[in-house]
């Protein structure tokens, strides 16, 4: 289940890509989910835990993947219990956030209206303790907080 806290959240990690650069584990990068997310969002291929092949930048280090994918990987594999600011993720990360939340109880902080797509979903808004099921319901509540 995806839980979202909207607006400023002091205890959240405001810039997850920086946290990622300092805390990621090599084995996270070669997990099947990470490989898929890096391929889908960054259009890049994982060659090894230390090497990514980008179509634009050529061979790059893990630290050079996008901030959005870094945050997705943290959401999936970080076990520190920290809450990450998902507003560093573009809309092209939304489906992956929903997917990660299918497998675990995931809580994120959002400071903008992420577009979760035209389909149905289940997101608990922690500010109001309400569950929303589509973008119309989400915008109606989230628009008051972000």
């Amino acid at each position: 289940m995806l839980n979202v806290y909207l607006g400023e959240m002091e205890q959240a990690v405001y810039h997850p890509p920086t946290y990622f650069d300092n805390r990621y584990e090599d084995e996270w990068i070669t997990e099947e989910l990470s490989v898929e997310m890096i391929r889908d969002v960054d259009h890049s291929e994982v060659i090894s835990p230390h090497l990514i092949e980008s179509p634009v930048l050529g061979p790059i280090s893990v630290r050079e993947i996008s901030g959005g994918v870094k945050t997705l990987i943290l959401m999936a594999f970080d076990s520190s219990g920290r809450i990450f600011n998902a507003s560093v993720c573009g809309d092209n990360c939304a489906k992956w956030i929903l997917k990660i939340a299918e497998e675990k109880e995931l809580t994120i902080n959002l400071r903008h209206l992420m577009n979760f797509g035209s389909g149905d979903f289940e997101i608990r808004i922690l500010n109001t303790d309400e569950v929303v099921h589509n973008m119309g319901e989400f915008v109606s509540i989230a628009g008051n907080y972000v």
């Binding site: 969002v41 634009v56 573009g90 903008h112």
Partner: peptide
């Protein structure tokens, strides 16, 4: 500037 991830903003 906003938009999708991996479009080169940080680069």
């Amino acid at each position: 500037i906003r938009g999708d991830s991996a479009t080169g903003k940080t680069t």
